[in-house]
Design a protein around this nucleic acid. Structure first.
Ligand SMILES: [Zn+2]
Ligand SMILES: [Zn+2]
Ligand SMILES: [Zn+2]
Ligand SMILES: [Zn+2]
Lengths: 149, 149
DNA sequence: ATAAACCTTAGACTAGACTCTAATGTCAAG
DNA sequence: CTTGACATTAGAGTCTAGTCTAAGGTTTAT
């Protein structure tokens, strides 16, 4: 099949497929007389392998490592693959944690504000973003802010 | 204070502060005779406002909106600020959800593999990444894979 | 007076993963 | 035979948020 068909079958764009080739990830097993890329079913499998890996959060570089393991399994050991997976689990957990921290802060921010069409003069969101625990030399004092504003 | 001092006080680099200025976010209220940026306490507050907003996940563009609300509160309404906050909450929740999906998939991937120093010939990680629900025309069948490999 | 430490500018570079363009060649259908 | 869809290449552009460099000017301390 040609690149357009592979794009359809894999859910990636032709641009992306050529880009992956340039990155050394996947290449067509043959070329036509007119130099068109001709892909086999095995090529399609490889592309899907790449896509699945990407969907799990692996970078293109990491996918490259998986591909080279896949290309010559006896030359590699399980540990190589598992290390990558566990490293990725760690990274994703870290990011989830960061985002959950953000989310907590954002909820506090949002909940304090009425969200109405009134002037933002006493808007709690701006106040909270503005608040500095130790504010000196400014004659500025943090508003009490009991209600939503 | 000069930019180096502001950097210390705010926890941002001088590079970043000049970059923020170029982005139209914060500028020194005055310049010295020798054209050095001279920042006031109010400038420091603004920079901290920016930093806090960034830490909550807002983009520089969004921070710019917050800053303009902050700069002229009566000209704005609470809804503007709250919309931004809620939109961000939505985005962060989306991302957390995606990452949790990834995490589930990654755990499945990782748990199936022994992680040992044996050949990756039957490595479950490669197998799982390779698996395609509907695989035809290839004489290829998905391995049973009961054990960790 | 001279070195260290600071400041200035414009602009280039980084990462990651695409995404698109231009200029040209090829192929199938009407 | 021409039109339109598809293909080729090298290389440039996009996005975000910095990060760094070069080539110089200024301030402070010794
Ligand atoms: Zn409000
Ligand atoms: Zn309000
Ligand atoms: Zn394994
Ligand atoms: Zn194993």
């Amino acid at each position: 099949m040609k690149i357009g068909e592979l794009a359809k079958q894999s859910g990636l764009s032709t641009h992306t497929l050529r880009f992956y080739e340039k990155q050394g990830l996947i290449r067509a097993s043959t070329r036509s007389e007119s130099n068109y890329r001709i892909y086999s079913q095995a090529d399609l499998s490889a592309v899907r392998f790449v896509k699945r890996s990407r969907d799990m959060g692996f970078s293109l570089e990491e996918v490259g490592v998986f591909l080279s393991i896949r290309a010559d399994k006896p030359a590699h050991v399980c540990r190589e693959a598992k290390d990558l997976a566990q490293q990725k689990i760690f990274e994703v957990e870290q990011k989830i944690h960061e985002m959950q921290q953000m989310l907590t802060a954002l909820h506090k921010l949002s909940d304090a504000c009425c969200g109405g069409n009134e002037s933002a003069e006493f808007c709690s969101i701006i106040e909270v973003l503005d608040y500095t625990s130790v504010e000196q030399d400014e004659g500025y004092s943090v508003p009490a802010g009991k209600g939503k504003a």
